[in-house]
Computed example of a mutant assay.
Amino acid sequence: MDFTTAVNDIIRDRRSIYTNMFSGEVVDDAIIETMLENANWAPNHKHTEPWRFVVFKGEGIKKLGEFQANFYKENNPDTFDENKYDKLYSKPLECSHVIAIGMKKSNMVPEVEEVCATACAVQNMLLTAAANKIGCYWSTGGITFQPKAKSFFGLGDEDQLLGFLYIGMPKSDKWPAGRRKPIDEKVKWVVE
């Protein structure tokens, strides 16, 4: 297989593999490190490199679950839901690794460009996971957009927490099939 075909196949083979599809097997740290290194090569305007990541594994995953569950409880006394609390605590525990995704604001370019650059970094991680047949998905649920949660992840007031990559080994060797509507329904060509 030539390089171009391999790249096309990996892009088209990337899937969100959710925690209920994880086997419990631990992903090799070398693959996580490769995901992070590939993230670091994302395009970004003025070389601001705005992506920031915090990797949780082992007991660190439990610390993340405790933090987000307790954060939810402390900040929602009037609408507290025990089921949501339990889910915030237990969801990370289903993973081999969890990577918190942060965007460090530089003031050199518009904020949307920093968010887009960070999303490109995450896409590089997702593609690397897919190439290694590692289960992975990006979630923006839970405490993601809570300003008071940022400091736990080393982010300042001007920065953004953009979610979490949940990572684990898939239970099955069978990779899910993808679905997309035809590209010609989403593109307009202007030629004259």
Rank of each mutant, 00 (worst) to 15 (best):
S139V: 01
S139R: 05
V187M: 07
G102Q: 04
R52Q: 14
K62S: 00
A69W: 05
W189Y: 15
G60E: 05
F71P: 02
N124I: 01
L36F: 10
E94P: 09
F71L: 10
D157Y: 07
I143C: 02
F164D: 04
K57P: 00
V55L: 02
T19V: 15
G65F: 03
S151D: 12
E82A: 15
K186S: 04
I10K: 04
N124A: 04
V122H: 04
K174S: 09
L165E: 01
V7Q: 10
W175D: 07
G24D: 09
P147S: 10
T4R: 15
A6S: 14
K171M: 07
D78S: 14
S23M: 13
E94L: 15
T4E: 12
G168A: 04
Y85W: 14
G163N: 08
N75A: 05
A131H: 06
N83E: 11
R15E: 07
V191Y: 14
P92Y: 01
A39G: 03
T4Y: 14
R12N: 14
T140Q: 13
I31Q: 08
Q68K: 06
S90F: 11
P170T: 03
C136V: 05
E74C: 11
L93W: 10
G102F: 09
K62M: 02
Q68V: 06
D159H: 05
M1D: 08
D86P: 00
K181E: 08
E37D: 11
K133C: 07
A42C: 06
D159R: 00
V191A: 13
I101N: 00
S151L: 10
N44T: 12
E94K: 15
I10R: 08
N44K: 13
